[in-house]
Design a protein around this nucleic acid. Structure first.
Lengths: 230, 230
DNA sequence: CGACCATTTGATATGGATCAAGCGATGTGG
DNA sequence: CCACATCGCTTGATCCATATCAAATGGTCG
């Protein structure tokens, strides 16, 4: 009946109510700009909800360590992952007062949590801050538009594009350690896990990639992936 | 071979180089805020390109009258329409210096063309203007996220969602006069024209809508569409 | 009237979904 | 330390929604 994606039940749990607290250990990413100094690092456990769609948007977020997914769900449980965020990536900056998507930790991670109100107040005085908010939001928009292009492609093209994106963002070279599950990948690409798995197998059989373990992928023929990426 | 969308050739023509000029006739929409006073109304003919992807983004745009589509194309000609803009809608406000999509007139239309540099300069001094830029961009982001949700639905759900959106934005009641072709609708929904046409026929046979002419659609059972819209 | 283009309708093909089973890694309790 | 449950992933068989290919229809304009 449904074209793609899978049915999920409601988020597991949620312990955001305890609020930001200083982290025990030093994060791998060090904040530098004035906005980030206004935040507190906060650890999230694997699968933990960071915020929910339609919730009051009280904070901005920046990944310090680990990986975060944002997603929207349809009534019947189909899930679309909007983006994966890695160390250094900012997320949750809708200008409205409600979050337009939910966010969850993928694996244990550390997130810089920044109260919005003082930042928005600062932006009213400091045009660099205002410009920064705008720029970040605009690049999210650009990313979303690019993601829409993924969703009209064939399965091979989607997976190829995904691998190239992950290689670029996670390693810079051709060895990818994926932090997310096949289900996450499938819901990001608008495919089923079976199709993702089969497509990876095809690529491996064509010697385009190696898959030593399911979470580890090595790109052997970048050109082939680039060609598929249109 | 391709999952959806159709192959198109390059944009027809382009006469933006002549630059903004005052319109002969009065537009139906009257600008009021300081930003809009910085612009000039400009007519575009049906199908005319307003700007192209990757072009230097020198202007912001606001539809005064008629309808505009923005789109991105893949190398092989598959086209994804990112949005339709109607009178009162602003478009083309990427924060970067290049347009991330192309824009074309759907039918003859009038567009307010606003030079970016003075607006950006004004935003540096006037926080309301800065906030406005941010807010508009964020609502575009939200719209793009919602559009992604459309692209993972079934054909019936996509068409139902599209009709509800058009009814709301174009008429407010249940009588829709579509400004765009079936091909535009198909490329917006990530379907083929045949599937769009067949789905409309199904809805008509189920007495959910009437289609007196191909460009005119009357919603008879909004509830049915709402239910499909998930 | 006739050419043209957009749309609809019909027949068929197919990519990816679905349903189902197998497999390998990880962890748990006896 | 091993039997066994569990979980994530892969593989196989089949189905189906939508694409594709093709033709008919209908509206528009010279």
């Amino acid at each position: 009946m449904f074209t793609q994606t899978t049915v999920h039940q409601a988020p597991l749990h949620k312990s955001f109510e305890r609020g930001p607290q200083l982290p025990a250990s030093k994060p791998s990413y060090l904040p530098k700009n004035p906005i980030e100094l206004m935040g507190a690092a906060m650890p999230f456990k694997s699968g933990e909800e960071i915020y929910g769609e339609k919730e009051q948007a009280e904070y901005f977020y920046k990944v310090l360590d680990g990986c975060v997914r944002t997603y929207k769900m349809l009534n019947d449980g189909r899930r679309q992952i909007g983006a994966f965020y890695f160390a250094g990536d900012t997320f949750g900056l809708e200008a409205g007062d409600e979050h337009t998507a939910s966010a969850e930790a993928i694996g244990d991670c550390k997130v810089l949590v920044i109260k919005r109100s003082p930042v928005v107040a600062l932006a009213a005085r400091n045009s660099d801050v205002a410009r920064h908010l705008w720029t970040l939001t605009a690049s999210e928009l650009s990313r979303a538009q690019e993601h829409m292009m993924l969703l009209i492609k064939t399965a091979q093209e989607r997976v190829a594009g995904f691998l190239l994106d992950m290689a670029r963002r996670l390693s810079g070279n051709d060895e990818i350690d994926l932090p997310m599950s096949r289900q996450d990948i499938a819901d990001y690409l608008g495919l089923t896990i079976e199709t993702v798995s089969r497509t990876l197998t095809q690529f491996e059989q064509a010697a385009t990639i190696s898959v030593p373990t399911s979470r580890r992928i090595i790109v052997r023929r970048r050109g082939t992936l680039l060609r598929l990426n249109s």
